[in-house]
Design a binder for these strands. Structure first.
Length: 563
RNA sequence: UGGGGAAUAGUGUAACGGCAGCACGACUGACUCUGGAUCAGUUAGUCAAGGUUCAAAUCCUUGUUCCCCAGCCA
């Protein structure tokens, strides 16, 4: 894969291209995607994955590692490691045999800590967490030196070794870098390098009771892996001087860190903290709830990897802290699904339609096109008979002028069926609900063709043969939140106040074509005129469950909204 | 009030001293056996004020607004 010459590159790719040209890394391009295994991946991570793996793939010989930044045993679990691997793979990326863990480097990191102590660049500090905070100063006031800052190398070596051997309780001591307590960059005010944590690690077990901080791990991990471009999000910009300091202090290979803005989307939340809260508080049914912006949620919802990748390409990469309109994501989704999804008919809210002049026991097999965007997809047969179901929305007792569907005396085309003209309808006087529509058909319009008399109809509606349709449950989803920015709450409010109570609607009396009886979880379809649907893993042998991935663009709904 | 970043149509994103372009959205219209898709068109922008220059989104000065940093989280 390579990039065309004259297209404009985002600022990260421009830097990579410039480095390639200047020979800064001898023509190497080596990136990495470095998740912490403490949660599920979401679409924001997809942006980073596409960037890192994308840049590697676009450059001859380019590589991208998958590295788990697992320096905090209290929060990390194998379950997350597995889900992350599955999601990255599903998105279409391959890290070959380069699956690394920061925990693989714990021995090396320990050696480096020792080296820094010997060089007088690190010391063991006995301050409590609270004292450490007090000594750090504030954004505007410098901090004070720790009283333990000037311990001898021997004492530091001894204490650190004893921290390592488990002699001290959690939180009693830390190893700190000796930098500058008056530094305007808070990260440089003698940052903690190691803390005592008597906790089992998901990979190293009980081997360690001291764990390196992320800041003392990340830059060196990149260095060990000979990463050329260490791409991360904006909040780590302030940490770059510290990574540089460690790498210079250690005199090791120096990757180049480049920061870009993380992804924000309207009508949803993206932080791990909030997503976790949605799951634990039961606002959604799990990490893979189709309303979640997690990769597994989007997958279950029916998103394709292609759609997500296309989206990530379009949003670009920059340093401006932006929020992307979720409609762009939906556009990319429809763009892909339109090309790839087989068409099928499904009736969400059934209304019986009886064709009074159609033979009682006749069943015709009508030809239907599987995908007008893809001639190779072929055709299928759909059974047609006297009693059908149509969509409740497709009949109006007293239709307005611009309504093209069925109403008393009106004629429409039944897709791939016949022209039918409404002659009568039955209404439940108690509820006011129309329960049955009667019509006659024109035998000269078989297959839905225009009749020889040149008569035309404005509307075409979908239908299902009552005797042949298969029952299904359909779950309709809407935006997770009611506000573009869910954190926009009055004083004392919480983002959950903006959760959309109608984000899920379950319809249990839906009907689909008999051809769908054998559909398997994950299969995607377009229900004509309605949207894209995907078979949910909750489906069983006798009960199909569909998720509505996204609706089709709906001009009529727009007209109605305007009134 | 310290330090680090960032500001271009409604939303994103290009233009790297030389015609402010593209995408999404919105709005028209054409076409259509999906009110889908497709096609054509319209809409709308350089944070502000000065300065340099034949020429400034771009360079300089001053200001404004927004984001990040005071975890023994990442």
């Amino acid at each position: 894969m390579s990039l065309p010459e004259n297209v404009s590159l985002d600022f990260v790719r421009s830097i990579v291209a410039a480095d390639l040209k200047s020979g800064k890394y001898q023509g190497r391009v080596h990136t990495r995607f470095p998740p912490e295994p403490n949660g599920y991946l979401h679409i924001g991570h997809a942006k980073s994955i596409c960037l890192n793996f994308g840049i590697a793939a676009e450059n001859e010989g380019g590589l991208c590692n998958l590295r788990f930044d697992d320096t905090n045993p209290c929060k990390e679990e194998v379950e997350y490691v597995e889900s992350i691997k599955e999601d990255v793979r599903w998105l279409g990326f391959d890290w070959g045999d380069r699956e690394y863990y920061a925990s693989d480097y714990f021995d090396q990191l320990y050696e480096w800590a020792l080296q820094m102590i010997r060089d007088g660049k690190a010391y063991v500090c006995d301050l409590t967490a609270e004292q450490t905070r007090e000594y750090r100063g504030t954004l505007t006031a410098p901090g004070k030196n720790s009283p333990y800052r000037d311990r001898s190398v021997e004492e530091n070596l001894d204490l650190f070794e004893r921290m390592h051997s488990g002699e001290f309780p959690d939180g009693s001591r830390t190893l700190r870098a000796k930098i500058d307590m008056a530094a305007p960059n808070m990260n440089l005010r003698d940052p903690v390098m190691y803390r005592i944590l008597h906790a089992s690690h998901h990979r190293t077990g009980d081997k360690w009771c001291i764990y390196p901080m992320y800041d003392f791990t990340h830059g060196q991990s990149d260095s060990i892996e000979r990463i050329t471009h260490s791409i991360c999000t904006l909040e780590f910009e302030n940490h770059r001087p510290l990574y540089d300091w460690y790498i210079d202090a250690l005199g090791i290979y120096h990757p180049q860190q480049i920061e870009f803005a993380r992804l924000n989307l309207t009508y949803t939340v993206m932080s791990k903290r909030r997503l976790l809260e949605l799951v634990t508080a039961g606002h959604v049914r799990g990490w893979d709830d189709p309303r979640m912006p997690t990769i597994c949620g989007l997958r279950r919802r029916g998103y394709s990897p292609e759609a997500i990748r296309g989206f990530c390409e379009r949003i670009g990469v920059a340093k401006f802290n932006s929020t992307i309109d979720i409609q762009l994501l939906e556009h990319c989704l429809r763009e892909d699904l339109n090309k790839t999804s087989p068409r099928v008919m499904g009736v969400l809210r059934p209304l019986k339609l009886v064709i009074d002049n159609y033979p009682e026991d006749l069943v015709e097999q009508m030809d239907a096109v599987n995908n007008p965007e893809d001639p190779k997809a072929g055709t299928r047969k759909v059974p047609f008979s006297r009693e059908l179901y149509i969509e409740q929305d497709d009949f109006l007792e007293d239709p307005p002028k611009k309504y093209f569907r069925l109403g008393p005396g009106r004629e429409v085309r039944l897709r791939y069926g016949y022209f039918v003209k409404c002659t009568d309808f039955v209404k439940d006087e108690a509820t006011g609900q129309v329960t049955e529509v009667h019509c006659t058909y024109d035998p000269e319009t078989r297959g839905g063709d225009n009749p020889p008399d040149g008569r035309k109809v404005k509307g075409t509606i979908h239908w299902l043969s009552a005797a042949h349709a298969v029952k299904a449950e359909v779950r309709l989803y809407d935006h997770l939140c009611t506000k573009e920015d869910p954190s926009d709450v009055p004083e004392g409010g919480h983002f959950t106040d903006n959760l959309n109570p109608k984000s899920l609607e379950v319809l249990t009396e839906c009907l689909v074509e008999p051809s769908l009886a054998s559909a398997a979880p994950g299969d995607r379809f377009q229900f004509e005129r309605q949207g894209y649907f995907c078979v949910d893993p909750d489906s069983t042998a006798d009960r199909l469950v569909f998720n509505r991935t996204v609706t089709l663009k709906d001009t009529w709904a727009k007209i109605q909204k305007r009134e």
